[in-house]
Design a binder for these strands. Structure first.
Lengths: 133, 133
DNA sequence: CCTTTTTAATTGCAAATGCAATGAGTTAAT
DNA sequence: ATTAACTCATTGCATTTGCAATTAAAAAGG
């Protein structure tokens, strides 16, 4: 009965390994590519919210963002309303790379779902939506 | 269209965080509890196979098993047929703890799937089986 | 207001992580 | 039977990770 939860974990880890290998040449391994994708899609989140949205530890996210800023992928901006917050934005460089990141993620998704028909896909999507982590 | 692959990743990370917090008092965080579950269920695998079955880096698995042996949870045994292999077995201590590990995993699974009816569960299981990582 | 409680960001530190490299045993091929 | 190719375990090393603690800002309560 535990097959589902185990399958889910196995898929995640396999894709993670593949993605990190893919983006290592760009120094975007260690899940750093995930940060770029999120920030390009939703620019302006503050650090903690960004971390939470990825289910990643806030201190880990803090240091990773710091490195991505140093490497010219991200940019931080103070929030005018709340002095505690530091909002994260993509640089031009990140926006230029984004299509490639997105394409890779799409390819992983396509591969994962390759055996499903359109109706099966629809059904899976609906069922996944009912899960509660 | 990427919802499925992202949902899967989010679920995995959330459960991982919860599980590590749960087993930290036993020093079975950092995914060490996963090793115990696998070895109890399938004793005698050699180190590399165990690592591969969990989609975990072999060197990481090597060091983790080493620590679990030092802490009295696992036991290593040489393979009589192939001198390279070191097979992993649970100790009494691990076997005693196993029911609790299993119960926690089951509870996570139950919670995840709580909103699904029996037929939906059946369908999800079938669809997950068609996925190819 | 002033105090208490919450929420961010940040840092310290010890431990875990994972790629690359090494060495030893096994299999395949000539 | 010897060489070549492979697989496993292990170690080196630099980096990453994450819990715990600190500081600063904002919100809540009285």
């Amino acid at each position: 009965m535990l097959d589902i939860i185990r399958d889910i974990g196995a898929i995640t880890r396999t894709i993670q390994i593949r993605s990190n290998a893919e983006f290592r040449p760009l120094e975007l391994d260690n899940n750093r590519f995930i940060y770029l994708i999120r920030v390009c899609e939703q620019p302006g989140m503050f650090l903690g919210a960004l971390a939470d949205s990825m289910q990643i530890d806030r201190t880990t996210a803090f240091r990773t963002v710091k490195k991505l800023v140093a490497d010219g992928w991200l940019r931080l901006e103070a929030d005018p309303a709340d002095k505690r917050l530091r909002c994260v934005f993509p640089t031009e460089r990140a926006l230029t790379l984004y299509p490639r990141l997105h394409a890779f993620e799409q390819a992983q998704s396509d591969h994962l779902l390759a055996q499903l028909s359109d109706s099966e896909l629809k059904r899976l999507r609906a069922l996944m939506g009912k899960l509660q982590a």
